[in-house]
Amino acid sequence: MSIDLQKRPFGSLKESGMKGVFLTFAFISIVTTIGIVLVLLVETADFFREVSIKEFVLGFRWSPTIKPTSFGVWPLVSGTLYFTFAVALIALPAGLLAAVFLSEYAGRRLRSAIKPALEILAGIPTVVYGYFALVYITPLLRTLMPGIKTFNVLSASIVVAIMIIPTVASISEDAIRAVPQSLRQAGSGLGVTKFQVTTTIVLPASLSGIISSFILGISRAIGETMAVTIAGGNLARLVNPFKPAEALLKPIQTMTAAMVEIGMSDVTGDSTAYKSLFAVGFTLFLMTLTLNVVSQIIKSRYQEKYQ
């Protein structure tokens, strides 16, 4: 495409100048990534000069500001995983079923009415969801379960699931729509019901896209901050893996909520608590990055290609 019919000295100077400017702008994204990794690495390394890696990775008590301080990350990691599991239990099936409804059952008019509503759902700020959980959902749950605490995992995970359903639904729907009509018709031609066509032909054929939407949804839940901070409470404690249901009605603290707590307190730049912020952030970053990369690989490598 680069047919320069006229070679003008000033013109070409401007040409390469503009190209250089745009290249620099594109390069900012690389610099951002390097910046994130460097900031997290440098401060985390600083943190490990004061707290042993063993205490951080294997410790069972998280108390960054209240003495005696302790920086065991397990309560936060277990809190995050527990919360994420609860969210996934609601959001993944609901998101997938919503996607199936939109692509297989809903007519064009119904679909064009529901899609914008789901987009609105995804566009509402997470603080609003947190408030909604704390002020409306928890009291509602209390009428059913009197023992529920003011801050609890259940209502936080319900609202975060509502937030994530549109993401899961829209990516799954794209995958389901990519299954060619001829496969569905072949199924119908064999005389099976629409339910069988959907569950035995359409869903297996779009499995890679569905799984990548699931992983992306889980990654979003792990990184979710405000709703779980407001409604889930700020009590760093280990979840008893043998009595999982019990913890639903009690407060926990996720990694993100712990970061907000430190960020809100007036810790100074050279304190251990300040540096622990970056160690937790780094853990969070590694978890979400791994999930996002896995999701991309599954999507690109295992996607069924139809012409």
Binding site: A26, F27, S29, I30, T32, T33, G35, I36, V39, L40, V42, E43, L216, S219, I222, G223, E224, T225, T256, M259, V260, G263, L277, F278, G281, L284, F285, T288, L289, N292, V293, Q296
Partner: peptide, 25 residues
Amino acid sequence: KIIETNIANLAGVPSIVYGLLGLGF
């Protein structure tokens, strides 16, 4: 390809981590 993959990954970084970038940088 590297730049585009990188942009896709940046979009998936939790917003609170950008806050750490702002604080640290």
